Structures are given as C-alpha cells and as structure tokens.
Amino acid sequence: MSRRSDMHGFTLIELLITLALLTIVAGIAVPNFTAFIQKTQLQGQADDLVATLLYARGEAVTRRTTAEIIVSDTGPWVVRVGGESLRELNHNPALAQMDADVTSIIYRPNGTATAALVTICRNDEFEKAYVVAVRPSGSPTIHPRGKNADGSALASCTR
C-alpha cells in the first residue's frame, strides 16, 4: 500500500497490533507484580519485628531493667518497660499472620532474652513464610524464606 508523502500517523492495523502487544505484556506483568508485593509485605513485617526486638533489647540494656514484648495474634505487639508501654508493632492479620511459640519475650538488663520462634506467614503459604528466631543471647535472626530455624523446609505456618 503506498502512502502520499504528506500523510503522517499510524494505520488502524498498526495501532491494533501495538495495543494487542501491550495487553499481552500487561497480562504477564500484573500477576508477577502482585506476587512481588506480597513477598515484600512479608519481608517488611519480618524486618519490623526484628527492629522491635532490637529496640526492646536496647531499652533493657540502657535502662538496666527488663523489657517485655507482649505477643498478640490479632492485636499489636507491645514493648513494655517497668509497666510503661514504649512502642507497638502493629500488624494486619489479613496481610501477614505472626505466630509465636511464646506469649511474651523478656529481655534482661544484660541483653539476654527468652528464646522464641515467630513465623510470619500469609494465607498458610508456608513456602513463602519467614521464621524469626530470638536466641537466648538476645539476638534476633531472620531465616531464609520457607526455611525453619534448623534450615529444614517449613511444613506449616503454625508453631
């Protein structure tokens, strides 16, 4: 098909082919992007938990007293020192469930703590879950996605 030299623009067929290609690319990208957002939300919750644990440990050492983190399945996790609430870790159970094997985590004035394991999961997808371990030395550790504290594959999101 020949064009006149003074005509500019796209033909209808060129426009339709471009739109079809964009639709295919968007159809591939959107599910991957959704999965990426969900993984990032879980990683963010694990990072927030570690930051809260380190904060409680620092307060216990600085104030030379015990700091307690009250664990809740549905509400915020509260850091208390001397009966005073200092910080809360809010989490949305619809986005990430945090399941701990203890009801509270105690940090002592020397920085040591009660050992605990916390599983951060979404929709019972344990292969994407994170495990945060609090060692008796007081240091928290995030284990690789889908792995238990001993390095084995997670079999469940509950403790």
Score class of each variant (00 low, 15 high):
Ala46Thr: 00
Asn32Ser: 13
Pro31Asn: 10
Pro31Tyr: 05
Tyr55Gly: 07
Gly44Cys: 02
Ile28Glu: 11
Asp47Arg: 15
Gln38Ile: 13
Gln41Phe: 09
Ala46Ser: 03
Leu53Ala: 03
Ala26Val: 00
Lys39Val: 06
Thr18Tyr: 11
Leu53Val: 00
Thr34Arg: 05
Pro31Gln: 07
Asp48His: 14
Val50Phe: 01
Ala56Asn: 01
Leu53Ser: 06
Ala20Trp: 03
Val25Phe: 08
Lys39Asn: 14
Lys39Trp: 02
Phe36Asn: 10
Ala29Glu: 03
Ile24Ser: 01
Gln38Ser: 11
Arg57Asp: 02
Leu19Ser: 08
Thr18Gln: 13
Leu19Arg: 04
Ile24Trp: 06
Gln43Ile: 02
Leu16Gln: 11
Gln41Lys: 06
Tyr55Asn: 05
Ile17Arg: 07
Thr52Glu: 08
Arg57Thr: 01
Gln45His: 13
Leu49Val: 06
Ile37Met: 06
Thr18Gly: 15
Gln38Pro: 11
Leu22Gly: 13
Asn32Tyr: 14
Thr34Leu: 13
Gln43Cys: 08
Asp47Tyr: 03
Ala46Gly: 08
Asn32Arg: 14
Val30Gln: 09
Tyr55Thr: 07
Ile37Tyr: 00
Gln43Tyr: 04
Thr18Leu: 15
Asn32Cys: 13
Ile24Gly: 08
Thr18Asn: 15
Thr40Cys: 04
Lys39Leu: 07
Phe33Met: 15
Thr52His: 14
Asp48Tyr: 06
Leu19Cys: 10
Asn32Gly: 15
Leu53Gly: 01
Ala29Cys: 05
Ala29Arg: 02
Ile28Val: 15
Ala56Pro: 06
Val30Gly: 09
Gly27Ile: 02
